[in-house]
Nucleic acid binder design. Sequence first.
DNA 1: GTGGTCTAGACCACT
DNA 2: GTGGTCTAGACCACG
Lengths: 123, 123, 123, 123
Amino acid sequence: MFSIDKMSRVPIYEQLISIFETGIISGEFAADEPLPSVRALSQQLSINPNTLQRAYQEIEHRGLCYTVPGSGRYLSTDALDRIRSAAFERMDDLGSMLTELKSKGVSKDEIQRVIDSVYERQV
Amino acid sequence: MFSIDKMSRVPIYEQLISIFETGIISGEFAADEPLPSVRALSQQLSINPNTLQRAYQEIEHRGLCYTVPGSGRYLSTDALDRIRSAAFERMDDLGSMLTELKSKGVSKDEIQRVIDSVYERQV
Amino acid sequence: MFSIDKMSRVPIYEQLISIFETGIISGEFAADEPLPSVRALSQQLSINPNTLQRAYQEIEHRGLCYTVPGSGRYLSTDALDRIRSAAFERMDDLGSMLTELKSKGVSKDEIQRVIDSVYERQV
Amino acid sequence: MFSIDKMSRVPIYEQLISIFETGIISGEFAADEPLPSVRALSQQLSINPNTLQRAYQEIEHRGLCYTVPGSGRYLSTDALDRIRSAAFERMDDLGSMLTELKSKGVSKDEIQRVIDSVYERQV
DNA sequence: GTGGTCTAGACCACT
DNA sequence: GTGGTCTAGACCACG
């Protein structure tokens, strides 16, 4: 589940955030269990603890988890909702990309094909 | 036409590239016509000549223009074609974005609505 | 290994590119090994970091290395292959040069002698 | 005969020099007739007179022609010889290029094929 | 520590 | 006038 691509041009801490979001969506993390500790997980992933620390800070900043001093980090009860509502803010980016593609001559059919393949047969 | 945001996190030279691509698409620049000179435009935009130079280099690298030393930079005759064919390589990015949105609970209908609004009434 | 001629009419950053290509061919740099850092090498060669940066950018553009932000630059695994296939695109230049030499009265034997000396005794 | 490529990255004045050298080799210019005047030829080629002037200066500097004040420029009697002997100085460049191609994995056979095609069937 | 970007200002070659 | 290259030095993001 925790696979990061160090060769990617996407910063590692952002990859970590995505991984956590995906994990939360898939229900991988229980609400009453602490998230992996910085020390343990950074060692497991062979990444710099500071990098993981930064990812956790951002996750916390987004309200997806909270810290109980001396105990650990726990998922917020509304983590899932927050992720979903945050997704809608990215719809603007989608609009921008589509506008750009359209202006460069990409037809609606070609766009549609991509969408259908992602949401394939979602009757 | 030339408005750049120096505070943006997207580099100025990338903004410039986008601006030129847009200008080429809109027919603002004619094929084999000279593009604005580095000195003149950099002064007009209050940016460093080197920054504009870098943007031009990348634009040239993409085959959108060619340089005649001592004379100036000229739009390639096939600039528009190149921009269009390059657009299709971005379809992968669209797929990634859609996959992410889907995993975060965005329904196909909501996606569809955005597409339709961009390509509105494309009968 | 790193000797550049600042007085040469060939730009420093092109000299650097050639040096790296040679180094890659000679196996001086191993795949997925970090290349010298911009700061360190530019200091060692007494050149401006920006100049080396530009050389690295072009090298990266050719797919010979990749960058991990905050970490460093690493040699691509297929760097050698790319250099070799790029060489074949230069065969046209060879043809042009030969055509010019021929038109100026250089005989085939004289050309042949040069080739044989480069590929001496290639039984 | 006089065709220059303004889009080329080869400076126009260098193209002009090559054109004259080719013309001299092919016997296009008679020894007792003046070379085209700067004004006339620059107008015919739609190039800047200064550029042609510079080309003539270089040609003259190479001893291929000489100026008779008030009359015009005339071919040197040994122009052909000078061009041919100058060609041999370019053999070094050929050697460099071959060495580079060899180091990048181009085989002798592939080089040989180019030579044979240029000097085809020169029995 | 690493690379990425930007500015300021200089010098060169070409037209 | 044009573009091409280089230096010096600054600030930022990432690990």
